[in-house]
Amino acid sequence: MSASPTPTSHPRDVLLGAQAGAVVLPVCDHYSGVEARMKKSLALQAEMAEEFGACVFDVTLDCEDGAPVGGEAEHAQLVTELALAAAPAMRVGVRVHPVDHAAFEADIATIAGRAGRRLSHLMVPKVESVADVAQAAKALDAAGAGDLPLHVLIESPLAVHRAFDIAAHPRVQSLSFGLMDFVSAHAGAIPADGMGALGQFTHPLVVRAKLAIASAAHAHGKVPSHCVVTEFSNALALRAAAKRAADEFGYTRMWSIHPSQIRPILEAFAPDEGRIDLATRIVDAAIRQNWAPVSIDGTLHDRASYRHFWQVLERAHATGRPLPAEAQAWFDAPKH
């Protein structure tokens, strides 16, 4: 029989401490901006939530790339209605226009003003500084959506330089890397293949930016979200990129721009069965020993490794992976 944690000995409380209430975001953030595709994305989200028993990816409705020039207000109304119509358990966000765009204030007033309590997050693109974050937070406050988490898109060399300061802002929940704009911001100094599935992991400037953003996010307890793979018909390239983002670059979330990318991202970011079983054994042993060090298969484990393996189980739960009964009981236990 497995150990049953009491409210004061639950892994999330003992191992994460002050971070125990921190949000664990779905590992996939799916973007769509055309009306038909937005509706299909929301329908797929509901279908997969029923399949997995949880909402396993976010849908972010896109105003920046989705709204036609001159039709920004109408598009903002559309995404608001779609967000309001989504089932309560579904996670729906919106990407608005940048803070210096003429439509930004209207986007916030319409979308956050009407659907702010329904949204999971608001994505602000082309954030260059903490001042941009503060402007977005002020606009949300004015719209009555002061509790809505901000996700920000880092898309330039200067923004990468300021990533740690941006990540430190208390309203920021996640940092995303905008690969395409980052490469184009270098005036041709980075070749076009730096935007590709392979080149983005080999060009030194792109690699440096990815690592800086991931490090900034983790330094402040925020979620680093990896950039797109534009070769959406190349399943092998997508799987390889997602696996590298998760295993080598420290990202815990990734963008999808086509429905076919969602399941490979979930698979790449999910722990495999062996890691889940090992994590369950170690955390269970830790509870039995009241969090004192233990030896498992000849390897010493203490609070540091307990924390790591608990986070493995959190990732498994967030990706809809089957858990051993004892591990599932830890997630079924009420939070205190």
Rank of each mutant, 00 (worst) to 15 (best):
S174R: 03
W291C: 08
Q173P: 02
S225R: 12
V160P: 01
M195P: 02
L158Y: 10
L175A: 10
P271A: 12
L84T: 13
D65I: 12
E231C: 07
M38N: 10
A242P: 00
T80Y: 01
I154D: 01
R244F: 10
H169R: 09
E51Q: 13
P68V: 10
A159E: 03
A137P: 00
A241H: 02
L179A: 14
A318N: 08
R315Y: 06
P149W: 02
T252S: 14
D272R: 11
I287M: 13
A212F: 06
T202Q: 07
A245G: 13
M180D: 03
G33L: 06
G71S: 09
F177D: 09
A242D: 05
A270H: 05
E128M: 13
A83N: 08
E50F: 02
G298S: 05
H308C: 09
P224R: 02
A189E: 11
T319M: 06
A209S: 11
L179Q: 12
I257V: 13
I287S: 05
I296D: 15
P68S: 12
A209N: 05
V229F: 03
T202C: 04
P125Y: 02
G196I: 06
S174N: 08
S129W: 02
R114Q: 15
G188H: 01
G320S: 11
W330L: 14
V69F: 15
V172Y: 01
A189V: 00
P264M: 00
D29Q: 12
A131W: 04
A168Y: 05
H30P: 08
I296C: 13
P259F: 05
E81A: 03
I166P: 01
A49K: 01
P191G: 15
A89P: 00
A329N: 04
P271F: 02
G70D: 10
R114G: 15
G199F: 02
A137E: 14
A246S: 13
L205K: 04
L278N: 03
F177P: 05
A22D: 14
H301M: 08
A329H: 07
D107P: 11
K222D: 04
A22M: 14
L119V: 06
V223G: 00
L313M: 12
A43M: 07
R288V: 01
L198R: 05
H203F: 08
K243Q: 09
P224V: 07
